[in-house]
Design a protein around this nucleic acid. Structure first.
Lengths: 342, 342
DNA sequence: GAAACTCTTGTAATCGATTGCATTGATCTT
DNA sequence: AAGATCAATGCAATCGATTACAAGAGTTTC
């Protein structure tokens, strides 16, 4: 049978080094307050015993978990997963762990309580604008100061820190590009309306159309849900119209992929018969056939900046009364799914 | 200025309900030991105060964090992200949180210590067979019993619990299928060799070839790294050979996508000129052009089963001396990237 | 009616790390 | 040389929840 040695505590290390637990603690957190000789003895004892700090005890005492909570609507989505990866890496650099909550839509109040208020996490990185902000405000009103950064998807509240991209500008940029290629019959696949990013992109689309002096035709507008299936549904919606648009601006790459896939079944070729421009530049976009023209979202940067901001707020190295608002730029990546008309 | 109310403790609830903290604790964990009237009073007090248990204190006392650590080589990869999603959902059902560590390759010893031994997590879900098992054994030998489940990628140690798929069988199955379509010139893109799954698939490939009475030709074997870029590299490797294979079995879908993409640039069409079969069935596989024939991995099930097993082990509801070994079945999904020869 | 039992609740110790305050001994100042 | 100053370390309280044990009240039994 395996002998289970208890994991050593700070007391064990103290005994081993013939000092008090207080001294061991000091060696670990403020070494300059301890003499060189004891410091070395303690370090040796730490090595010998294989000591690791008990985080639960530390969290209890310091009221800080050195952990952030990342909440996203669906981690399974490749768009989010890249961000998550960036968040985890950046958090690790600052010595923080990351708890991940997915599919948070169900009962936001519950997990907010469960995680944040129970000292499991020191702050919240929210990647879901569709969350009912009432819950957040409820906490706020109760006087709980909740370190929170809304990332990627804006929450329409200037008090809430945010790291987002220039969705509106990017959308109108996409339309201008299509216009430059000679397109005038332009459709748009919208994302789910609960997302603020969706609405921003829609506004940008309308602005772009207006600037170009083009009409927005309702039969060329389709509301999807940011997945490939809804790209298919959009294709079928467009096919049912009297006339097809010659170009479609899609709210994200996955819907673009679904759209192209479905249209191809009807022998409608992209980019020959229809130009398609996506949004995000997910990994597969450049290897798809045709390689997708898309508005690239700096996903790594979103994750990194958001994490950095949140930890700054948690650690109080940033003034509390001035909300942080970072807007990152999306770049147009021209590939082969768009083409000059004619 | 916002008044910061301290988050209520169990003491506050006790005072509010005019009982002792012990009673409140009992109401929350073993309600049947408390009389109905006090139970109601306490519940009311919990509601009134908005009490949430301090997890740090609870973890410290119970030496259990109700948290599992999920470690994967790269969360950004869409293959893993689906699994992660399933893990988080299943863990939530059992009342567990999930800490996620990505890019763990760098210093396994460090994060093992940091997370597991420091009472931050009660068990480890390891999605990376490339991890040096020495580190794990080191802990084991030190007498620390570490609830561990290796998922998806096997660790070659019968003592370690695992939830994997039938990689070898699936690979030989893929070859048999290609053989049925009349192919005899079959290549293979291997994954990174540190992964056990890769090796199993390679063995299955060899077995399948042997059963079919076919030679494995080294110029039709390429070692990639499970990403699209290495699919491209593989294409270039094959193009450099005297002759192209008529079918390629890819270690995963992403390499298949890269391969098809690159070959198309050379006017080599899939499936007309070459059949390609992938592995995993990632989300984009069915919408790719051509839709990918692939060996589907039951990713949701992997995540679910692994999580379930790990929590069973943590909670001791499963005999300790009998390692768990679950092998899930991969299914052949026939789409359009493969084709009868001739 | 007293002993034995059950049911409910409270008291106090405990988990492990941190830190304000106290103590000791050494060095410095005038 | 006596007092002041400083560096290094220990003591003990603390964070909040859990639980073994004790105690009190009410019930049952012979």
């Amino acid at each position: 049978m395996v002998v289970i040695k208890k994991t050593p505590t700070i007391q064990d290390v103290a005994r081993h080094a013939s000092v008090s637990a207080a001294t061991v603690s000091r060696v670990l957190s403020s070494p300059e307050r301890v003499s060189e000789t004891t410091r070395e003895r303690v370090h040796a004892a730490v090595r010998d015993t294989g000591y690791t700090m008990n985080q639960a005890a530390r969290s209890l005492r310091l009221k800080a978990a050195r952990t952030i909570l990342l909440a996203a609507p669906n981690i399974g989505n490749p768009f989010y997963s890249t961000i998550v990866d960036a968040v985890i890496r950046e958090a690790a650099v600052r010595g923080y762990s990351v708890l991940v909550a997915s599919r948070i839509g169900d009962d936001p109040n519950r997990w907010l309580r469960d995680y944040l208020l129970s000292n499991r996490a020191d702050g919240l990185l929210l990647f879901d604008g569709s969350l009912d902000t009432g819950a957040l405000h409820g906490l706020w009103d109760d006087g709980v100061s909740l370190p929170l950064v809304a990332a990627y998807d804006e929450i329409p509240d200037p008090q809430i820190n945010s790291v987002i991209t220039d969705n509106r500008l990017a959308a109108s940029r996409a339309i201008r590009y299509l216009r430059e290629l000679g397109h005038s019959k332009i459709g748009h696949i919208i994302g789910p309306s609960r997302n603020q990013s969706t609405n921003e992109r829609l506004v940008g689309f309308r602005e772009g159309m207006h600037e170009a002096g083009l009409q927005v035709r309702p039969e060329w507008l389709f509301q999807g849900s940011y997945n490939m299936e809804s790209g298919i549904a959009a294709a079928e919606w467009f096919l049912a119209a009297d006339e097809l648009p010659t170009a479609v601006f899609c709210g994200n790459d996955e819907m673009a992929i679904g759209l192209i896939h479905r249209l191809r079944r009807e022998k409608i070729d992209c980019p020959l018969d229809i130009s398609v421009i996506g949004f995000d530049d997910i990994a597969v976009a450049r290897y798809f056939d045709p390689p997708l023209t898309t508005m690239r979202q700096p996903r790594e940067d979103i994750g990194k900046m958001a994490t950095r901001s949140l930890i700054d707020i948690i650690e109080g190295t940033v003034p509390e009364n001035e909300p942080i608002h970072v807007v990152l730029t999306s770049d147009l990546v021209v590939r082969e799914s768009t083409r000059r008309i004619g």
